[in-house]
């Protein structure tokens, strides 16, 4: 199994190559790449050679606009073999490795609640991980699901929030403030951990720490939108876009350069 850092680097290269061919949600795909790399190598019980293995853990990408980031990771693992450019812009049931079609924001956590409850009722030892955006948490349906998960003590449900602090039009705190976000989850009855979402060791440890416990858990992963492509990092203009030839080369050169230290998580106090 690849080290998650290397899996993430290769997946980002795929995203960049794709973004040179068509407009994609670049920033959202790149901010969560390290999170997905950790989940598919260390966080989930998963067999890339058998993506339909009945005992696998389940990952739902609630922030469905990050689809190409997920496809890129699944392609590196060999689960997806198709040309990524031919795949739909939001996760679809027809794509190998996709557990639930998503894309309208605020649906994944309810789906995850149902899957986690179903696993428990069937006596299956199965973990369900839902990756959400942070801007996505503006949708009230997430909080219906959060209340439900805590009420039913769904200890096999984990939410991972890609806390890149940017939504389509700008800073989440300027548009409709989410903070104090950790306190909100705690108030809803969730166990909360925070980590630098680009530090794969820290994410690994945080997910392991959330494994044992009563009730649902959330990892607030502090990330940088567009991570790995310097001119896109932290720039909401790259929420969606297509790279020209020079931008593609700049991006690939940056990804191939020796790893820089992870930037301090923007503004998010780690606790």
């Amino acid at each position: 199994m690849l080290h998650p850092d290397e899996l993430a680097r290769r997946a980002r290269r795929r995203v960049v190559e794709l973004a040179a061919r068509k407009a994609v949600h670049l920033g959202a795909a790149l901010s969560m790449t390290d999170l997905l790399a950790v989940l598919y190598t260390r966080g989930l019980r998963y067999r890339p050679d058998r993506p339909d293995w009945p005992d696998r853990d389940l990952l739902i990408l609630s922030k469905g606009h990050g689809a190409y980031g997920l496809y890129a990771v699944l392609a590196e693992l060999g689960v997806i073999t198709a040309d990524l450019a031919t795949l739909p812009g939001h996760p679809s049931d027809a794509v190998p490795g996709i557990e639930a079609a998503t894309g309208a924001l605020g649906h994944g956590l309810s789906l995850g609640c149902g899957m986690a409850l179903g696993a428990r009722l069937a006596g299956r030892d199965q973990r369900v991980v839902v990756v959400t955006g942070d801007g996505e948490l503006d949708e009230g349906s997430n909080w219906e699901a959060a209340q439900f998960a805590a009420h039913h003590r769904l200890g096999n449900l984990v939410a991972v929030v890609d806390r890149n602090r940017l939504q389509q039009e700008g800073d989440t705190e300027t548009i409709s403030a989410l903070e104090p976000l950790a306190d909100k989850w705690r108030a809803f009855g969730w166990r909360v951990a925070e980590a630098d979402g680009h530090d794969t060791a820290a994410v690994t440890d945080a997910l392991a720490g959330l494994r044992a416990g009563d009730g649902p858990a959330v990892l607030l992963a502090h990330t940088v939108k567009g991570r790995g492509v310097p001119f896109a990092e932290g720039d909401p203009a790259w929420h969606m876009g297509q790279l020209d030839a020079a931008q593609r080369q700049t991006a690939l050169d940056a990804l191939d350069a020796p790893a820089a230290p992870a930037p301090a998580a923007a503004g998010g106090a780690l606790s």
Binding site: C113, G114, G118, E144, A145, F148
Partner: peptide, 20 residues
């Protein structure tokens, strides 16, 4: 699910996906 119809439907979908 309480008074939460959107979650009702989402949870039902998740349960159906889990084989129920």
């Amino acid at each position: 699910v309480g008074i939460a119809e959107a979650n009702l439907v989402g949870v039902a979908a998740g349960l159906a996906r889990s084989g129920m």
